[in-house]
Design a protein around this nucleic acid. Structure first.
Lengths: 208, 208
DNA sequence: GCTAGAATTCATCACGCGATGAATTCCGTG
DNA sequence: CACGGAATTCATCGCGTGATGAATTCTAGC
C-alpha cells in the first residue's frame, strides 16, 4: 500500500523460471497450437512478464522448438524394438511402443502441439515429418529386408498420425478414451502389414 | 488522373462477386487454414473490398462454413459403394472412392482446409468429425453385419485422415505424388480389415 | 424517369499480437 | 564491500486483425 509506482528490476525467490515458462508453453501449444497460443498468455500462465520470454528464448518460434523438444532418442528405440521379439510382429511392438509413449502425460502435449501446429507452421510441419516417417519408422522399415522401405515408412507413419489426430486432437470415440494397449492392439496388424506385408493386395500389379 | 478522391458506391460490371469471394476463400483456407487466412487477404485475391465480405457472409466463421460446404451427398454414396461389387472388398471400393474424390481439384482445398483448421477451430473440428467418421463411414460400418460398428468406423476414419494429412498437408513422399488409384490400392486392405476383419488379431482377447 | 433496394467502397475502431530497449534490482564472485 | 552480469519489469512501437456504419452508386421494377 505504498502507492508509489511498481518498480522494475529483478525479483527474489521463485526459482526455475525457465522451466515454468517451458511448462506453460507446452501446455498452451499442446491445447491451442502455435497460432492459437500467444506469448502474453504463456507469460500469464507462468506468472512472468512477457518480455522475460523473449529474454530466454529469442522468438516465439524458438520457444516452440524448445518446448516441443522430444525426450526420447529415436536412434535408440529401433534396435530395441527389433531385438525385443519375433520379426513377424515388429510392427505390433513398434505400435505399442509409440502409443504407450504418446499416452504419457508429459509427452502428450508434445504430440498434440506438433500435430496441431503442423497444419500451419512450416517448422512444425518439418518436425512432424522428421518425428515419425523420416526418423525411426524409416530406420525400422529399412531394417526389414523388403523393397520400398520409404513407401512403407510413409504408409505406417500416415496410419499413426491419423490415430494421433483422431485420439488426441479431434477426440473421436471410442478411440479417444480407450486404454493405450488396446489401441496398439487394434492398429498393430495394420502397421505390421505396411512394414512387412505384401503391398496393395487387392490387385496384382507392380508397386510404384 | 482526375486527382480527386476515389468515390465510394457501387461499381459496374464484374458479376459473380460472391462466387469469386468463395473461390478465393477456398484457396486461402485450403493453403493456410482458418487462422492463417485473413479476410483482407481473401478480399485482395478476389479483387474486392474487405467490407464486402462482411456484407455477404456476416463473419469469418460463416465465410469458412460457406466456402467449405461439401459438394457430395454422403447419404447417397454408401449404398452405391455397397452395391458396386462383392462385400469382401467393400473397404477397398470405399477407399478408392474417397481418395478419388479428394484428388479432384475442386475438392482438395476443402479437405486440406477442414483438416488444417480442425486442429484449432472447433467448428472445423466438428466438420472433420462429421465428414468422415460420423457420416458415411459409420453408415458403411453399420451396414456390414459385424459388431463394434462405431469402433470400426473410427479406426477406418483415422486411417483415411492420416493419409489425407500425409499426402496433402505434410506432403510426405512418395505418398504425396502418387496416382490416386495406387494410393487407394495400398490402403484399401487396411480399410477393409478395419471395417470387416477380425479386430486386434495379435492377441486373442475380447474386444472393448 | 423514379425510386427502392442491393452492391460496393471508405474511413475508422478497438484490440491483441510479437518484439524491442532501457531501467532496475538481485546475486555470486573477488 | 564492490561490482559485473543475470534476471525481471515497464513502457512502448508498429502492425495486422475482424468488425462496423455511413456514404455512394448502380440496377431492376414500376
Amino acid at each position: 500500500m505504498t502507492g508509489g509506482p511498481r518498480r522494475t528490476g529483478r525479483r527474489p525467490g521463485l526459482a526455475d523460471t525457465r522451466g515454468r515458462i517451458l511448462d506453460a508453453a507446452r501446455h498452451a501449444f499442446g491445447e491451442r497450437g502455435f497460432d492459437g497460443t500467444s506469448i502474453r498468455q504463456v507469460a500469464a500462465d507462468a506468472n512472468v512478464d512477457p518480455a522475460l520470454i523473449h529474454h530466454y528464448f529469442r522468438s516465439k518460434q524458438q520457444l516452440f522448438v524448445a518446448a516441443m523438444a522430444f525426450p526420447v532418442d529415436p536412434s535408440a528405440v529401433v534396435p530395441a524394438v527389433i531385438a525385443d521379439g519375433p520379426p513377424e510382429h515388429v510392427g505390433e511392438r513398434f505400435a505399442a511402443f509409440v502409443i504407450g509413449l504418446w499416452d504419457r502425460p508429459e509427452v502428450r502435449p508434445l504430440v498434440t502441439g506438433v500435430v496441431r501446429s503442423a497444419s500451419t507452421d512450416p517448422v512444425a510441419a518439418d518436425m512432424a515429418r522428421r518425428l515419425l516417417t523420416e526418423g525411426p519408422l524409416l530406420a525400422l522399415a529399412s531394417a526389414i529386408d523388403r523393397p520400398d522401405a520409404p513407401l512403407r515408412a510413409t504408409l505406417a507413419g500416415a496410419q499413426l498420425m491419423g490415430v494421433a489426430i483422431a485420439r488426441y486432437v479431434v477426440r473421436m470415440e471410442p478411440l479417444a478414451s480407450m486404454p493405450p494397449d488396446e489401441v496398439a492392439d487394434l492398429i498393430g496388424p495394420s502397421i505390421q502389414g505396411y512394414l512387412a506385408g505384401d503391398l496393395g493386395a487387392s490387385s496384382g500389379r507392380s508397386q510404384r
